[in-house]
Amino acid sequence: MGGKVTCTLGEVKQRADFIIYWGGNPAECHPRHFTKYTIMQKSKFLPRGRKDRTMVLVDIRETKSAKAADIFLRIRPGKDFELITILRALIKGHPVGDDEIAETGLSREVIEDLISRMKGAKFGCLFFGMGLSMTRGKHMNSAALLYLTAEMNAFTKFVAMPMRGHGNVTGADVIMRWQTGFPFGISFNRGYPRYNPGEFSTVDVLVRGDCDAAFIIGADPGATMPQPAIDHLARIPTIVLDPHVTHTSRLARVHITTAPQVIAAPGTAYRMDELPMPLKPALKSPYPTDEEVVRRINEAIAKKPFWLPDGNQPQIVATK
């Protein structure tokens, strides 16, 4: 597994004549996605704009985004993986039984129509949201969808892009990949980065009670995580950096107020297509920036003995 066939939103805006949103509600969660990048824009290759593009929405309920869609496919909850697998089979001409198709909540005609449209497109783009990645199957759903996208390239140009939310989460992935080689769920406890989601991912670590201190920045797990994880955060020394006093701050030993990014703190943020954007802060905050505070904590820790028993950083020893 691995690899994502993707592109930038600029290419989608210029070229994508077939757009699928899977498990996302851009009308309410990414309000300018339609108008700025996907269906409304006119371009050199799609001069009639909306008329030149087809938009399909795949979801388990009829959200506000369904109004903007040409085709709305309402599937049964938790059947995303099954539908993707059926599509992958039918695209290659493998037979699929009626029972398997009935399980997804769609009819064979609808699925075959979708496939002929996908194959007939000049440039297809699949946007997938949390409705796909946070339901039964989780990352296996995303992986199957990325496989489907890669396999569609045997017939026509097809790309996939996750609908990232929450400001700069994309940046966090990119920075961790750049610095450690892995996007999340990393442990440095052997002195080098290791990647193992499920073992090193936060919810699992907290629920098992594996960590004995927590440093939380730009997040509020006290409001979003399961109760056993929150209980553990309250048990251990927790340090919070946030522009507001949050739920997590109330159970933390240390809270430091920082300047809100974009509004008062300069820097860079990544768009969902992994393009870095410079920030232009408008206000002068009375608080320090996140960057400054974390750097000062780093400097304060660097003055203390290193965490190995002898208190020294490991040295590279020349061998002959």
Binding site: D212, G218, D290, E291
Partner: peptide, 17 residues
């Protein structure tokens, strides 16, 4: 075993730190 978590509502410069 300290945990560093979050980083979504912050800049890339702070994430690197």
């Amino acid at each position: 075993m300290p945990l560093v978590y979050g980083m979504s509502n912050t800049t890339c410069e702070a994430q690197k730190e």
